[in-house]
Nucleic acid binder design. Structure first.
Length: 457
RNA sequence: GCCCUCAUCGUCUAUCGGUUAGGACAGGAGAUUCUCAAUCUUCAAAGCGGGGUUCGAUUCCCCGUGGGGGCGCCA
């Protein structure tokens, strides 16, 4: 085990979104790559906005994505507790250090961090008020991704609110010190805060951790970074829609990082092996749901059939679309196996396979008009209905051969039967092969559907 | 307004001074197939602008411009 200790420090103030997931992922990847420790810390100092429900969303989402934490809530560790709301004693100790060292003072009921340097007053045009500034040199941030960054931190800032609760900058730094965090990997939106943090680290007399400010994920359309309200922003949504977590992880890893060559689809173990800070980009990346969908499809295609069926079963049950017919697990599995190579996502399944599970499926009138408008398809269908009792429906090739033989007799081709049989069995013109459909539906159901179609259409 | 940061096809990106600027998604065309997908082939598509440095800049520097972030007793 290396000495690397990274942390993911979300606050449970809303649903877990894709930017947070990516930050968690990069931290996790770095920990796993270096053989270090991945710490989960809950930053719940804002009592007004925190909720227990959102806390569970964080645990669920991380678990679903496979980002297991070595220390943190639920698993414990020797640097706990891991929820900031339970660390108030630690914060008091650290505050006392600052107070005793003359690096903090009280004003307006709050406690402020005192920067070193000479003070002077100036009118701030933007904020329309007089502020006290400190004459001092810019703070230097050595960032593993950004390089050398300088920023002038010239105003004291609040570290304890007047209600007695510590603020983010303070607890963040204190916890990083007390949890022995070595690498701070977080979004670039914190780069401007980093100067405050560096000053705090210096005031505590501790070494500053390595910083790595990763690029942000921008919303797909329009300006700005991805926020909770944007389309596709919530991890929970992908979970609900039956996306494969490994596909999402693979996609997310490529947003702001690359292995240095053309490889894109990689098992997570390979990403862990290749991931490193120098491979992280500096520029923001725009979220692309089409590419995610493609990645998901690629993973879905190679998923072992049993797993695909299980995923489908879970989705059908959760969406409450299971019918009496779908309750037949053997039949359900056969249908799903037929659909696996054809769909791009699990949530397409109910729509794509609906007609398998009910006799009351709709007939697409446009398709019907088109199919019936060419030649005499109903005659072909009648031939199938008559020949069907003698066919072997055990496998697709046998069915295909039977249809071809039937076609040859009348001087037709397979194609003259395909569309009309499909229409009679499914009511539409898209779907799995008709041979597969016939095999899975079975003789009785096929016979009944063709008969009904012939009688009514 | 001030501060920080970034800049290659529509999008994600490769290139660490010398390449016909490569790949992937999306888009077009074709092949294949029982439909639709998938798959295969193929086409179109990029170095923000201006100055430098250099024999040579997408690559290094500066200035613009544009994007992003920050400027709370939120995190």
């Amino acid at each position: 085990m290396s000495s690397v200790r990274v942390r993911f420090a979300p606050s449970p103030t809303g649903f877990f979104h894709i930017g947070s997931a990516r930050t968690a992922l990069f931290n996790w990847l770095y920990a796993r790559h270096t053989g270090g420790t991945f710490v989960l810390r809950i930053e719940d100092t804002d009592k007004e906005r925190n909720s227990e429900a959102f806390l569970n969303v964080i645990y669920d989402s991380l678990t679903w994505l496979g980002l297991n934490w070595d220390e943190g809530p639920k698993v414990g560790g020797s640097f706990g507790p891991y929820r900031q709301s339970e660390r108030t004693d630690i914060y008091k100790v650290y505050l006392k250090k600052l107070l005793d060292g003359g690096r903090a003072y009280e004003k307006d009921g709050a406690i402020w961090f005192k920067l070193d340097g000479e003070r002077y007053e100036v009118f701030d045009e933007h904020r329309k008020k007089t502020v006290t500034k400190v004459r001092r040199a810019p703070t230097v941030i050595e960032d593993r991704i950004r390089g050398h960054v300088e920023r002038l931190e010239d105003e004291d800032f609040v570290i304890f609110r007047s209600d007695g609760n510590p603020v983010f900058h303070f607890v963040n730094v204190v916890d990083d010190i007390s949890m022995a965090i070595t690498h701070v990997i977080r979004g670039e939106d914190h780069l401007s805060n980093a100067s405050k943090h560096v000053e705090l680290f210096k005031a505590f007399g501790t070494s500053v951790p390595e910083f790595a400010h990763i690029p942000l994920i921008l919303k797909q359309n329009g300006p700005g970074k991805m926020s909770k309200r944007d389309q596709g922003a919530l991890i929970e949504e992908y979970q609900r829609r039956g996306f494969l977590p490994e596909a999402l992880v693979n996609f997310l890893s490529l947003l702001g990082w690359n292995p240095g060559d053309d490889r894109e689809k990689m098992p997570v173990a390979e990403i862990v092996r290749l991931f490193d800070l120098p491979g992280v980009n500096q520029s923001n990346a725009r979220f692309d749901e089409k590419k995610l969908a493609h990645m998901n499809m690629a993973y879905l295609l190679e998923l072992p059939a049993e797993q695909f069926v299980a995923k489908a079963r879970e989705f059908f049950e959760r969406q409450n679309v299971a019918t009496a017919l779908a309750a037949d697990t053997g039949y359900f599995a056969d249908v799903m196996r037929l659909a696996q190579p054809k769909v791009k996502a699990i949530d397409e399944l109910p729509g794509y396979t609906g007609y398998f599970f009910t006799e009351d499926f709709p007939i697409d009138e446009k398709v019907k008009a088109k199919v019936l408008g060419k030649g005499d398809p109903k005659a072909r269908l009648r031939e199938v209905a008559e020949a069907l009792p003698g066919w072997d429906l055990a496998n697709d090739t046998a069915i295909e051969e039977a249809i071809k033989a039937l076609a040859a007799k009348g001087g037709f081709g397979f194609g003259d039967y395909q569309a009309i049989v499909r229409l009679a069995l499914s009511g539409t013109n898209v779907g799995p092969s008709i041979t597969g459909m016939m095999r899975v539906m079975g003789r009785e159901r096929v016979q009944a559907r063709i008969g009904r179609f012939l009688a009514t259409a």
